[in-house]
């Protein structure tokens, strides 16, 4: 490559992108019209990358429970549809487990909703950590959590859930 043009590309407030044009032959630098074309293309690409990032962000927000950071019910329903479509193809089923935290209303009533929120965050972290690759947990609503455990029999799922519930019920709250 002998001929080079590089145009900085702004994506929102970020300036991490560069649009580069290279040609094998040695030629004079591009003329004003070519440079205008390159500038326009760089501007357009910057806008496209920004809009794409914003769309991804909005999608993440729409599908994530803001308190726990877990997939929310809408995300869980979408994922479940994909799981159901995939199962006949790969021949591996999955187990569904719905967990409801007992006496959670009492925590809220006695200690206030802020403490209740912290309990949900703590439990969500404990539920999520230690899951096998491909398994996932979502906040189904309130104090309900949905687990999807791949390739599990009822007995296998029960065993996994006992471990997860034990992990959630023990240990110190770290804030």
């Amino acid at each position: 490559m002998r001929t080079y043009s590089g145009i900085p590309v702004s994506v929102g407030d970020e300036a991490r992108w560069v649009l580069a044009f290279l040609r094998r032959r040695s030629e004079p630098p591009p003329d004003a019209a070519d440079i205008a074309y390159m500038d326009l293309l760089a501007d357009w690409q910057g806008n496209a990358l920004y809009q794409s990032a914003q769309k991804d962000l909005l999608k993440r927000i729409a599908l994530t429970d803001p308190l726990t950071g877990l997939p929310n019910r809408r995300a869980a329903e979408e994922r479940l549809q994909k799981e159901r479509a995939r199962t006949p193809r790969d021949g591996h089923g999955f187990a569904l487990t719905l967990v409801d935290l007992d006496h959670f209303k009492m925590v809220n009533d006695r200690y206030g909703p802020a403490v209740g929120d912290e309990v949900l965050k703590f439990v969500a972290r404990r539920f999520e950590s230690g899951l096998r690759k491909g398994d996932w947990v979502a906040r189904w609503g309130g104090e309900e959590f949905l687990f999807v455990l791949h390739g599990s029999t009822v007995e296998g799922a029960a065993s996994i859930m006992e471990q997860r519930l034990a992990a959630a019920g023990t240990g110190r709250y770290g804030g």
Partner: peptide, 24 residues
């Protein structure tokens, strides 16, 4: 769309290589 635009730019500007790259 981004790739199609790079292809178009390569053609109209007669470039051998057009790259949209990111620094991190």
């Amino acid at each position: 769309r981004i790739r199609a635009m790079l292809d178009m730019a390569a053609t109209v500007l007669d470039m051998d290589l057009v790259v949209l790259g990111e620094f991190g």
